[in-house]
Design a protein around this nucleic acid. Structure first.
Length: 128
DNA sequence: CATCTGACGACCG
DNA sequence: GCGGTCGCCAGAT
C-alpha cells in the first residue's frame, strides 16, 4: 500500500504521546486528507507494531467504533495518557510528526497531485 | 468511468 | 459545549 509513510509516522510516535489524523495527513502533504489517514489506519493490521491507539481525532477527541475506543483509551492510559471522557489533553501529549517522507508513490502513477493545494476552506458565503 | 463509503476536520446553529 | 452538515482524500464497488 501507499500508506507506508503513514505507518512509519505512527510507529515513531513516542510512548506517552499522541497525534491527530489531520496532523499525520498534513505531514503527508494531504491537507484535508485526515479521513484518508484514518482509512489507512483502519486497514492497519492490529498487533503489527503500529501504535494506532496513539492516533486520535482533532482536539484530542477519540473517534472510532467500538470496541477499539475502549481498547485505545486503555492502551493510552497504560502509557500515562489519561482520557477525560472522550478527550485527551493534547496540549500536554500532542506530538508533532517530522512530516518527512512524502513519497507520494501511489499505486497509480496517474493522479499526480500538486503538493500545494489551491485553496481549501472556501469563503464562508453560503453553505447550501 | 461514476458513485458511495469511511477509525476525520472545520463551521454553523 | 454539543450535534448536525458539508468538504477533503483515497479506496472499494
Amino acid at each position: 500500500m501507499s500508506w507506508d509513510p503513514v505507518y512509519r509516522l505512527v510507529k515513531l510516535i513516542p510512548r506517552g504521546r499522541v497525534t491527530t489524523y489531520g496532523q499525520l495527513a498534513t505531514a503527508l502533504r494531504l491537507p484535508g486528507g485526515a479521513r484518508a489517514v484514518g482509512y489507512a489506519l483502519a486497514a492497519t493490521p492490529n498487533g503489527r507494531g503500529i501504535p494506532w491507539h496513539r492516533v486520535i481525532g482533532a482536539g484530542g477527541k477519540v473517534t472510532m467504533p467500538e470496541p477499539h475506543a475502549s481498547l485505545q483509551r486503555r492502551l493510552l492510559a497504560s502509557e500515562g495518557v489519561p482520557i477525560e471522557g472522550t478527550r485527551i489533553d493534547m496540549k500536554l501529549f500532542a506530538w508533532s510528526p517530522k512530516s518527512r517522507s512524502k513519497p507520494r508513490a501511489k499505486s497509480r502513477a496517474k493522479s499526480r497531485k500538486p503538493k500545494r493545494k489551491p485553496s481549501r476552506r472556501v469563503a464562508p458565503k453560503s453553505r447550501v
